[in-house]
Design a protein around this nucleic acid. Structure first.
Lengths: 218, 218
DNA sequence: AGGCTAATGACAGCCACTGACAGTTGACAA
DNA sequence: TTGTCAACTGTCAGTGGCTGTCATTAGCCT
């Protein structure tokens, strides 16, 4: 009754490894083609041909072109959730979110690097930001992620999101600020992890001042 | 040298009126079909047939199915911008945004009602929220709108967005909160203007409390 | 070795969307 | 009024994303 996903130390079977290789190859080829010749100018047939599989197989690994272009973003996501859950309980929600995202960037980068070259990963952000169809899909995914964060924050504070608006609002504030940050980073000149961290910190620090009554005396 | 868009009091020519009628008819037919049988289950051919024009003509009025589904949202948008610009200079940015959006809802509703029945308009929000492709496109548009609001806010305060992060962050906070509000409204049971106004106010009021260090003593 | 099943390829088809060209119709002036 | 021009429209052909179906291949397990 030993299944393929077997015991912890056991290496997955040939079938699984082959699948993983095909998946990663399709992912890399997609990003490579998208970032060099453009997302819309790249056809699925091209990607399939580059990996030497049929077009039908591409769609068995990815629900569509969009998913192939955005899949790389998921690789780091779980690390952020983990970092958030690991924040000490005494931190205020926004403080925990801030610390989690700042320390999360490193873990994400490493996780991604195992599958895709880092520069390709970074270039992908620019491509997403400047491709309407991809930006739209990305924002929807981010919106979905925000809902998961809401749940984590609410649990942290022992609150019910249906009766207390604060978890949702706090996450909404955080999500809004992260979105501007991401946009400026992706469109700006310095596409590096350090630049992202600095921008993130700067914008999160600006939340309270931006809510002040009088900006002149800030 | 009198062009077709002529003098202010002048009524547009037959050609223009015909165009407007076709546009509105396509818009209404689209929303009607989308909200009754679903967005994806509706083909462009169906819409064209319902208005008795060719499929090609549909695409001359709308860039795609998505645009037809979301076009109705634009009808009220300009009213919000106007309301925001009209807010007195002594109001703090977030206060001005709050007041503008609350008073903007009425003007929007009226502007929309001239083209599309109100209940159809309201039902459209539910459809958008529950249709992945539409939600994605909507969020991208909202992101774009946020950038325009940034410019208005920065101008109000006489600031340069490139040197002072506060205009962008303030708008990001506002946009984030409006997004949660919209989501809860569209998915909730009460699809009315009043419900929207109440939800908006409640969530914007929760911004400061949600930023507090200690939620227990809030 | 041989049967089972997951993975793949090949093919046909739907639908959103686009370019090209020809026909029709409102606008405007002679 | 009538002729000319430009705008609007319909038709047709084609591209590309995406899906269902079915036969074939290839890892897996006894």
């Amino acid at each position: 009754m030993e299944t393929a996903e077997a015991t912890a130390a056991e290496r997955p079977g040939l079938r699984e490894r082959k699948k993983q290789r095909t998946h990663d190859a399709l992912l890399r080829a997609s990003l490579e083609l998208f970032t060099t010749q453009g997302y819309e100018a790249t056809t699925v047939d091209e990607i399939a041909e580059a990996v030497d599989v049929s077009q039908r197989t591409f769609f068995r690994y990815f629900a569509g072109k969009e998913e192939a272009a955005l899949a790389v973003l998921d690789l780091g996501q779980e690390h952020f959730f983990a970092a958030l859950r690991a924040r000490p309980a005494h931190e205020a929600p926004l403080e925990a979110l801030r610390n989690a995202v700042l320390e999360g960037w490193d873990a994400m980068g490493e996780a991604v690097a195992e599958i895709v070259p880092v520069d390709l990963y970074l270039r992908s952000y620019g491509m997403i930001e400047s491709t309407p169809a991809l930006l739209a899909a990305h924002l929807r995914r981010a919106d979905q992620v925000a809902r998961e964060i809401e749940a984590i924050v609410a649990e942290r504070e022992g609150l019910d999101v249906r009766t207390d608006p604060r978890p949702r609002v706090a996450v909404a504030v955080f999500a809004g600020v992260m979105r501007v940050t991401e946009r400026l980073w992706a469109m700006g000149g310095d596409l590096s992890m350090e630049a992202m961290r600095e921008l993130t910190a700067a914008h999160l620090d600006a939340v309270r001042p931006s809510l002040a009554e009088k900006w002149r005396t800030g």
